[in-house]
């Protein structure tokens, strides 16, 4: 289901950008206020609520013990899932996940996986037989644009917050959490820019997303390397614009990373 956009709204957003401003008075490279709270779900091994402006996402990490993939016998397993719940927007529908949901989950997954932020080999319990399986679930609670960045921030914050449960005779006792944390090696963040007409702005609100031509999400490691990218939308970027977005995003990624509640050990 798509929202019909009034032409007047589209014109207003584009004209405002042409004048060098945004409809909510932010700068082109300015994020909305960001808040991250962890430990918000007791039954989850790790959890976080992330707010970027009015967009709100809850992330939960659950752990299980299972078999590794045959081609990676000494490696833990990571899965990421997103739920665009109908409570978060009149355009989200119940039922099986649509392509937007799947794309979101897969792009967040790529940022987490490709940055190798979890040392999956340390999650091996018995080689070829028993490993930790890490489930990251992202619940969208309120949708005002830029789910990619909010979900990536939620996912990594919940992972950082995760404490392993006690295990006895191969059985997990979920009620008893240990002090052991996940082996976190990196802190990836994603930054998303929207191209609207000839202008490119960070952290689009819903109104901007609805009129944008295309968006570009880039995931960065702590070192500043690029570990995942995804262009979306029917519009296009030029070569120059893509390189520009990467450089602008790198600066923003440093800001975003400060919101991850991670203490160096």
């Amino acid at each position: 289901m798509y929202d019909l956009i009034a032409e007047i709204k589209r014109d207003n957003i584009i004209q405002t950008l042409k004048a060098g401003k945004r409809v909510d008075n932010r700068g082109f490279d300015e994020y909305r206020p960001i808040a991250v709270e962890v430990g918000v779900g007791e039954k989850a091994e790790g959890s976080a609520i992330v707010q970027i402006g009015k967009t709100r996402v809850m992330a939960g990490v659950k752990l299980a013990i299972g078999e590794p993939f045959p081609d990676m016998p000494n490696s833990g397993v990571l899965t990421t899932n997103a739920e665009l719940r109908p409570l978060a927007s009149p355009t989200f529908e119940k039922g099986p996940p649509g392509e937007d949901t799947i794309e979101l989950a897969r792009v967040v997954d790529r940022g987490i996986r490709e940055s190798e932020c979890i040392d999956l080999e340390k999650l091996c319990r018995v080689e070829g037989e028993e490993v930790w399986i890490v489930f990251i679930d992202l619940h969208i609670l309120d949708y005002d644009g830029n789910l990619f960045d909010a979900c990536e921030l939620g996912a990594i914050s919940a992972l950082v917050d995760t404490r392993l449960p006690k295990v006895e005779d191969g059985m997990i006792i979920y009620k008893e959490k240990t002090d052991e944390r996940l082996p976190i090696k990196d802190l990836p963040v994603e930054t998303t820019f929207a191209k609207i007409g000839d202008n490119i702005v960070v952290d689009p609100i819903l109104d901007e997303e609805q009129v944008m031509d295309a968006r570009l999400t880039v995931a960065y490691t702590k070192k500043g390397d690029i570990c995942a990218m995804q262009k979306g939308g029917v519009g296009t970027f030029t070569e120059k614009e893509i390189l520009e977005v990467i450089d602008r995003g790198l600066e923003k990624s440093k800001e975003l990373r400060k919101h991850i509640p991670f203490k160096e050990v």
Partner: peptide, 18 residues
């Protein structure tokens, strides 16, 4: 010369990406 598809996974430095 417009880019209509761009995806990436793995690890690139900025220079390698370019």
């Amino acid at each position: 010369g417009e880019v209509t598809l761009l995806q990436m996974d793995g690890n690139f430095t900025r220079e390698e990406f370019e």
